[in-house]
């Protein structure tokens, strides 16, 4: 029996979907069987980032309304043989098309066949959020070093802590610009973790390749030299129970220079 992890943030645009795609891919790279569920009904994106948009036949709403079987709706990522699947959200309806009970049942079913079920949560705290967390065993909160994102993360953590079935949530700080953090223009990692006072699962550097990779439909984590990819790979290893030291800012700088070196060597 696998484990269901919801990836949430409260605020939009902090990188929930990117994180879901990259962590799913990283876990598949580690040999785990992973199913990604996009619960952002009406505004689905996860399929685009994984480059699977044109393979969708059925979706989440078709499954819960029993128009098809789960395995019919799952889209296989061919890059990973039988290890990475996506259950896409419906695009033609909205969040009210699904209720938490249906999600619970669906995720329980998927956990039988997969090591990890990653649930990509929509922004907000309404129906979509309630659906996304209903079947989860663990929660990962994604934030960025912006005060508005940290404030929303605080709100979300409060809601997650009120759920008795969930383990205490863990934190990912995404899109870190080491320069701005060092000069004190943004909150630093320590400030964010002490303010939110939950365990830090990992940090991910801001990198423009994340965007270009998403546009190509190839999660950035496939590139082992990219600093953001290293962040995601470390987080995946920590999810698997390994203890990996936190990436330091100096190291990220070296990563940055390494990237320039890479550019010249190409």
């Amino acid at each position: 029996m696998g484990e269901a992890i919801v990836i949430t943030s409260g605020k939009g645009g902090v990188g929930k979907t990117t994180t879901s795609a990259n962590l799913g891919t990283a876990l598949a790279l580690q040999g785990k069987k992973v199913c990604l569920i996009d619960t952002d009904i009406g505004l689905r994106n996860l399929d685009v980032i994984l480059g699977l948009e044109n393979r969708i036949i059925y979706d989440l709403v078709d499954v819960v309304e029993e128009r098809c079987k789960v395995h019919q709706a799952l889209v296989k990522d061919k890059r990973f043989e039988d290890r990475l699947f996506l259950l896409p959200a419906a695009q033609t309806t909205d969040k009210s098309a699904v209720n938490p009970e249906q999600m619970k049942k669906l995720i329980l079913e998927l956990k039988q066949d997969y090591d990890y079920v990653l649930i990509d949560c929509p922004a907000g705290i309404e129906q979509g959020f309630k659906n996304a967390i209903s079947g989860a065993d663990r929660a990962i909160v994604v934030t960025t070093p912006e005060i508005s994102a940290v404030r929303d993360a605080d709100r979300i953590i409060g809601l997650l802590e009120a759920e008795e079935e969930l383990e205490p949530p863990k934190l990912i700080i995404n899109r870190i610009r080491s320069g701005m953090m060092e000069s004190g223009e943004t909150l630093d990692v320590n400030e964010i973790t002490t303010h939110l006072s939950i365990d830090l699962l990992g940090i991910v550097m801001d990198d423009q390749n994340v965007i270009s990779a998403s546009n190509k439909g190839e999660p950035v984590v496939m590139d082992p030299t990219n600093p953001a990819a290293i962040g995601y790979r470390n987080i995946a290893r920590r999810i698997l129970g390994e203890s990996v030291p936190l990436m330091t800012m100096e190291k990220s700088k070296a990563g940055f220079f390494g990237k320039i070196k890479n550019m010249f060597s190409k």
């Binding site: 929303d152 709100r155 409060g158 809601l159």
Partner: peptide
């Protein structure tokens, strides 16, 4: 945390932080 409300009829002792908007 943000958005949470803790109420007491009498005195209230909080051991922990009261975050913004809480």
């Amino acid at each position: 945390r943000s958005g949470q409300v803790v109420k007491a009829d009498g005195d209230l002792v909080v051991i922990g932080d009261v975050n913004q908007s809480a």
